[in-house]
Design a protein around this nucleic acid. Structure first.
Lengths: 109, 109
DNA sequence: GATATGTATCGTAATATTACAATATAAAAT
DNA sequence: ATTTTATATTGTAATATTACGATACATATC
């Protein structure tokens, strides 16, 4: 046990869960906001700003990258991370349609 | 270690992370979709439909309830779970403004 | 009040996450 | 070529999550 039973869910459910999970950490939200604000990002900046160890931030960046939410290119000595437009659009579409499924407050309880 | 350093992030960042985390599992997405479709829900239905043990579903429901995303009222023998309109609105607002921070694809890489 | 039914909780095993120090790697500057 | 600078990886400890059987609990029904 201790392992999510992905096989019993739809691909859409699994994909949305994976994307949400990738963002479901305050450090990763902070990183994304930082990228969103400056529309560019260098990891070193984050180390100074966030208050987490360099290894920890690198790990969080890796998770965001694995989920496809950000992408990085080598920019001289440092690495430039930025939003992956394709995944961001997918994210907006998936979350948007999911949240929109709720029709008003005709609650039963 | 192994414990998220919530104290170094803003309340908003922590709150959004908590809400996203509560939804970041295919079973919980499936549960929410089930509630959204029928606009009402009884746990027993889910046990038959999802393919997870009753204890597991009860646990997932508890997490959604703890996050304030759903609420349950006793309805005779069973319990009726439904969306918490207040939290859902908050969720839409928070996620919406977060996702909207991304301005087009003037990517740097 | 005993029994059935629906849900919650407890205990536990397997696995995943978070964080960091230490170390490795890779490109620029000296 | 060595040193510096920026980032990644490895190893590891602490904690959290996921799943389920067993059991408790709470409300109807008999």
């Amino acid at each position: 046990m201790g392992l999510t039973k992905t096989e019993i869910f739809t691909d859409e459910q699994n994909q949305l869960a994976t994307l949400l999970k990738a963002m479901a950490h305050p450090a990763r939200i902070a990183i994304l906001q930082r990228i969103l604000i400056s529309n560019t990002c260098i990891c070193g900046d984050l180390v100074g700003e966030l208050g987490l160890a360099q290894a920890t931030i690198s790990q969080h960046l890796k998770e965001l990258k694995n989920a496809g939410i950000i992408q990085g290119t080598i920019e001289g000595v440092s690495i430039c991370y930025c939003i992956n437009p394709k995944t961001w659009k997918l994210l907006e579409a998936q979350i948007g349609s999911f949240l929109a499924e709720y029709k008003g407050e005709t609650a039963c309880c």
